[in-house]
Design a protein around this nucleic acid. Sequence first.
DNA 1: AATATAAATGAATGTTCGTTCACTTTTGAG
DNA 2: CTCAAAAGTGAACGAACATTCATTTATATT
Lengths: 195, 195
Amino acid sequence: MRTRDEHKASVIREKAISMIVNEGFDGMSMQKLAKSAGVSPATLYIYYRNREDMLEQLYEFVQTAFANAALKEFDPTMNFEKGLWVQWKNRMRFIEECPHYFRFFEQFRNSPQINRSSIGMVAFKDNMHQFVSNAVKRGEIRKVEPEIFWSLAYGSFYSLLKFHLQQRTMMNPDFKVTDAKMKQLLNMVVKSLKP
Amino acid sequence: MRTRDEHKASVIREKAISMIVNEGFDGMSMQKLAKSAGVSPATLYIYYRNREDMLEQLYEFVQTAFANAALKEFDPTMNFEKGLWVQWKNRMRFIEECPHYFRFFEQFRNSPQINRSSIGMVAFKDNMHQFVSNAVKRGEIRKVEPEIFWSLAYGSFYSLLKFHLQQRTMMNPDFKVTDAKMKQLLNMVVKSLKP
DNA sequence: AATATAAATGAATGTTCGTTCACTTTTGAG
DNA sequence: CTCAAAAGTGAACGAACATTCATTTATATT
């Protein structure tokens, strides 16, 4: 029997993501996608059950890629400041390298599409839970409710990420959030979480 | 001559927003909208030049409503902690009362549609600039770059807002972010900004 | 009451949508 | 080399799409 062309699969995936990032969910149609990927519309239905299944799989793919990137060289036993820095750096590098993935991710997360998709991330959340409770035990940060912690440690950082991306696409293509600026924010976040 | 039915106009607006919030941009079609608002498709083109113009006007409407709500009883000469609290409280109340507006706002902001729309908010930004520089002058907070300030003072709060909304729609319809929780976050943000 | 004018309409336009199907091509396993 | 089976196709389906237009309806002004 014939084997699936993995190169073709990734071309379809990338074209779909670009199309959604540039034209929105309503701008990505199966026929346009087929044309832009250089395949027959019917071929798309070999890779995906239907349009909705395709969107779900794309999200799952990007989410996994992002989570894996974020946890590179991360270890939940690291001290708090170091561990958060590693993750932030990883995330920033990821959107530096794949801005369209990040935009797709954000677009999807804020759309009703997200309600029709299952959300994984279990392993990731386990990892983070350990990381935080270790830091609390060691007295590096004080114990706060999860939503407060996430808002400070990730909400503020994501805000900086988005500012980064917006600057880069809207006005200043060379714009870059420097390590110094990230460190400054990190210090302030750590200060706010001090026991 | 005949006068425009303002009630009809608002029905159309609300139905359009609900439809987008529940089914996404690709789920809102002019014909479905007309049917759900109880008007002819052609009527929509009296109120809006075309679909894109409609989306832009909806966004402008919601953005203005949100900004006005946020600034109620706010004054840029307030001390920092008080001023930030007033705004946060206002914003939280707004999404309590109009969660669909907030969801529409977020969905729009994260979509490519935003690039085709003009972004106003000039008066608002002026107001905020004064507020922050007053607080710095008075020594209530230290001077930091704008993106750092926004990330901390708004990024973290928005994160809490979104958590709020997500909880409420996904699992626990009675979920409410209490004043105590907001105050806790506020204190931590203020602490991080202390000179 | 008459009239001018904008609001409002329903049916129709041509286009594009997601998806299917009968068919051809390719290729790994025997 | 053979051939079963999956990959891949192009044309076609009805449905839904955004938008238009010739009319009808309502009303503020006179």
